[in-house]
Design a binder for these strands. Structure first.
Lengths: 343, 343
DNA sequence: ACTTCCGATCGTAACGATTCGATTCATGTT
DNA sequence: AACATGAATCGAATCGTTACGATCGGAAGT
């Protein structure tokens, strides 16, 4: 194996017969090097296939041009879309993205955050698995952080989130409008602001119609397919099953659907299903799934914008106070929801 | 904003009253520092919340402990699973992963590869969009590369791939066993070794049964949902439609299914559908989808192992010749395939 | 008592880039 | 002719770490 020894600016300088500083000036397009020297240097660079050592550069300049993205579960297409938004926008501004999947384990999340600090990334995008690792991270003398999807409880931070409360409120009102009264809500872990907001949105809609979101109708999953499946089975087999099921995440919706097909429960005639988060398979499953879609790609993009704003503060006062960028979700009615079944 | 100035080893050394070298020795667990000094230094490190600057370290040691992963399309769950395998295994060995999505554009792929080189990653995992950027990348004095999913045409390289040929051969034989004779194959771009192998596998199975894989039955998509949908529509509406459709990728399968539900073609009674790549929605779509599943998570893991082996050559001769690690796919028969329809 | 040796600690020179003040040289002004 | 101006180029210091040779005691060997 070649021992990975690339050329340095010194080599280029020697070949071109100029000083190292001149090479540096050319590489960084400083525009202060005369045209003929510039071309000589560029020729040397091309000849040697020189590419600057980002580590050394970062050491000197204090900027690494890397962003860290820490997501709770990369398996979730929602985060993949967000990742795409992040990447596209990062590239656009000359940044690379270090992707970390914390796999719903806050210990791993913490480890990732520390690794990112050691790598001296210029900024961090964080979709936290819980809010506890956060205190560490938000300390001064660490890179600025933008939260996505979910904000740490009672803390003022930069974040990009969707209108979870309103979206669920509207979703449940839609179900109630179809005549449903026994609505089961399957939520993720309530350590997430996201889950809390969504549940509260549901609760408000139900209260307005004098329905209670009773404990027995609020089910706690872990955002994964299996838990949706398990809860779905028990729900559908209970003596007094709900007429509508609202999962607060699309992985769990897959589990519910699996339970439904397995038990051959007619949907939506016997039970309606609605899910948070859209997915590309939503139109193709049987029946096609009514969802509340979030603009996840936008979320990633906007988050990078916000982050870069605090990395490169244009005006000194602009970056003073934490900003929250709210995005709108949209209800996409498909085949899995319908009027309530009358006995 | 805090101006992102972390403590350095000098600061720690001063506080602990020792030399910088001693701090370094402690940080790296060299085991040559006396127990009492070690504890003093560790205390100082903790007090200052010191974490070493990876850039400086990399500059000195020549290793960055970063791996680059370049995938053609992060939207494809197959690559997400592979990514998970890569991450888990990388973490395990103390590496971080720089994820790059080339979005099926080879220009972007090249840009990513150059960026990774500038960042001096220790190794690269590459699922190429086409084989042309490869020559650049495989040059000496660049980091070692392991290809995943797809190998550059006629080049001996390190790679981890599945048994594309055999899997398709077996898949088509299965369809033929069900009585199908008019089998449409929808392949991705034939610049991929993967696509080529798969098509050849199909071709062999058909030839053995004296069927020809005629040009008109080989359809070229671009691996995305839309192209599957478009091809599906035209196939199903043709005057002499195939009795079975085999998509060589799961995104296109979604497109086919969309076309089928839209045209209300009974499946599998009128047309059978089979797809390469499993997905978590495959059991839930209507009808559930017969697939050939690849061990994508394993692929990622194995690829990292192979890569690390050429980064840290244990014995000098071990890393001499390129290795190919082959993995097995498995046919998962579900509801979308059945006996051929008799008029 | 004198050397020898060894373990623990320290100083310093890299690593490869950027930055900034110093230098050079040609031009324009008086 | 003497000097100021300014553009183009260069040298040296610096960023934070690791690696390696030097140093310094004290224990052991004779």
């Amino acid at each position: 194996m070649a021992k990975q020894t690339s050329y340095t600016m010194r080599d280029v300088a020697r070949l071109a017969g100029v000083s190292i500083s001149t090479v540096s000036a050319v590489v960084n397009n400083k525009g202060i090097v005369g045209p003929e020297l510039t071309s000589v240097v560029k020729k040397a660079i091309a000849a040697m296939n020189f590419s600057p050592n980002a580590g050394a550069r970062g050491l000197r300049t204090g900027r690494t041009h890397m962003l860290g993205l820490v997501v709770q579960d990369i398996t979730n297409p929602f985060f993949v879309e967000a990742l795409r938004g992040v990447e596209d926008q990062a590239i656009e501004h000359g940044y690379e993205v270090l992707v970390c999947n914390s796999n719903d384990q806050s210990a791993l999340e913490l480890r990732h955050l520390n690794a990112l600090h050691t790598k001296r990334v210029d900024g961090i995008l964080l979709a936290p698995t819980d809010s506890y690792a956060v205190r560490e991270t938000l300390s001064q003398d660490r890179a600025p952080v933008v939260f996505i999807d979910c904000v740490p409880l009672k803390a003022k931070v930069n974040c990009v989130v969707t209108d979870n409360f309103d979206a669920c409120y509207n979703g449940v009102r839609y179900l109630i409008g179809l005549g449903h009264q026994r609505i089961a809500v399957i939520c993720g872990r309530l350590t997430h602001s996201t889950s809390i907001d969504r549940v509260e949105g549901c609760r408000k809609a139900m209260q307005e119609s004098n329905l209670l979101l009773r404990e027995e109708h609020l089910h706690h999953g872990d955002s994964h397919i299996e838990s949706g499946y398990r809860i779905g089975l028990s729900l559908l087999q209970s003596s007094d099953p709900p007429t509508a099921i609202f999962t607060l995440n699309n992985r769990m919706a897959l589990g519910i659907l699996r339970a439904i097909t397995e038990l051959k429960v007619p949907c939506p005639s016997r039970v309606s299903v609605m899910s948070f988060d859209d997915a590309d398979w939503a139109e193709v499953v049987s029946p096609s799934l009514t969802t509340i879609g979030q603009p996840s790609y936008e979320m990633g993009k906007d988050a990078v914008d916000l982050l870069l704003r605090s990395i490169l503060p244009a005006t000194e006062q602009a970056e003073a106070k934490p900003q929250q960028i709210p995005l709108k979700s949209t209800l996409r009615v498909r085949g899995s929801t319908g009027p309530v079944y009358k006995k």
